[in-house]
């Protein structure tokens, strides 16, 4: 199973540096969870890996091949090995659920048409959805969209899976079903995967390794257990979800304002 090696990855938008010489090794057949604050560039990282965004510097090796040096045609070949779940699901809203899930299967002629229905049904069952094939994305709830997006990502059985917040917006039981699914895909099919999550419970459960993204760099990579007991103040503030610490030091003003206003347990979101 392919290993993903990222070296010195830099990505800027205008003069705003989002990724700043980031290094990360994602071992083959393992699940690496990337954690980090909102807006630190986790989604950007995944898009760079897929070549959806062109990074400014650095290299991204997938099984030894540098994605950054590839032209569009080679990228197409490489992308066939990937599946990606988008943060906003990104379902095709002009197609129903079945056509969404079956999309890659039909494009790649992976199965004869009569077989595709069964595959779609099977993949939807894996994410806990039944008999919704003919619904349009606009008729689904946020959590359902997420799961259809996941079913679509795994439908063509890729070797590498990128999950951008797979459990966000799901109820705890369904979140656990998805966690089980991610683990099963890794164990039985040996999928290499990168997951992004804010949900530490889920992270501990599915991760072989956890990497913390902070200020454009990976500041620590370790197993779930090591992360939980990390001595790095930034990491420990994040995994324990404390409002006070080095991450929020820059937001002292904000924290004080919330305290004074008597605002209840605020988590900074978006």
């Amino acid at each position: 199973m392919p290993t993903i090696e990222i070296r010195g990855l830099t990505k800027r938008f205008g003069n705003k540096v989002v990724l700043d010489g980031l290094d990360l090794t994602v071992p083959g057949g393992r699940n690496t969870v990337v954690i980090g604050g909102s807006g630190t560039g986790k989604s950007v990282l995944l898009k760079c890996v897929l070549g959806l965004l062109r990074a400014d510097e650095g290299e991204i090796r997938i099984g030894g091949e540098d994605v950054m040096k590839m032209d569009e045609r080679e990228l197409v070949r490489v992308r066939r090995r990937f599946g990606m779940l988008f943060q906003g699901a990104a379902l095709f809203d002009s197609m129903n659920v079945e056509d969404n899930v079956a999309f890659a299967l039909r494009r790649l002629h992976k199965y004869p048409e009569r077989q595709i229905r069964n595959v779609v049904e099977e993949k939807l069952a894996m994410v806990g959805l039944y008999n919704i094939q003919s619904l349009m994305p606009s008729e689904l709830s946020g959590g359902m969209k997420k799961r259809v997006g996941l079913a679509r990502a795994i439908a063509s059985e890729p070797e590498i899976l990128l999950y951008d917040e797979p459990t966000t917006g799901l109820d705890p039981i369904m979140a656990d079903v998805i966690n089980e699914l991610i683990i099963r895909l890794r164990v039985s099919l040996g999928v290499t995967s990168i997951s992004i999550t804010h949900d530490m419970k889920s992270a501990y459960k599915i991760a072989d390794h956890i990497a913390m993204l902070y200020k454009g760099k990976i500041i620590e990579v370790a197993t779930a257990e090591e992360i939980r007991h990390s001595t790095n103040p930034v990491v420990s503030q994040f995994v324990e979800g404390r409002a006070q610490g080095p991450i929020t030091a820059e937001h002292e003003e904000f924290i004080r304002f919330v305290r004074r206003g008597g605002g209840s347990g605020v988590q900074e979101e978006q």
Binding site: K47, L50, G51, L52, V76, R79, R80, F82, G83, M84, F86, G88, A90, L91, F92, D93, S94, F103, A104, R107, L108, R152, A153, S156
Partner: peptide, 21 residues
Amino acid sequence: AELGTMKVTEQIDALVTLATN
């Protein structure tokens, strides 16, 4: 409008990941 919406809701990115130009 259709392509623009697809662009801003990442559907075009999704197409790319599904091996589609």
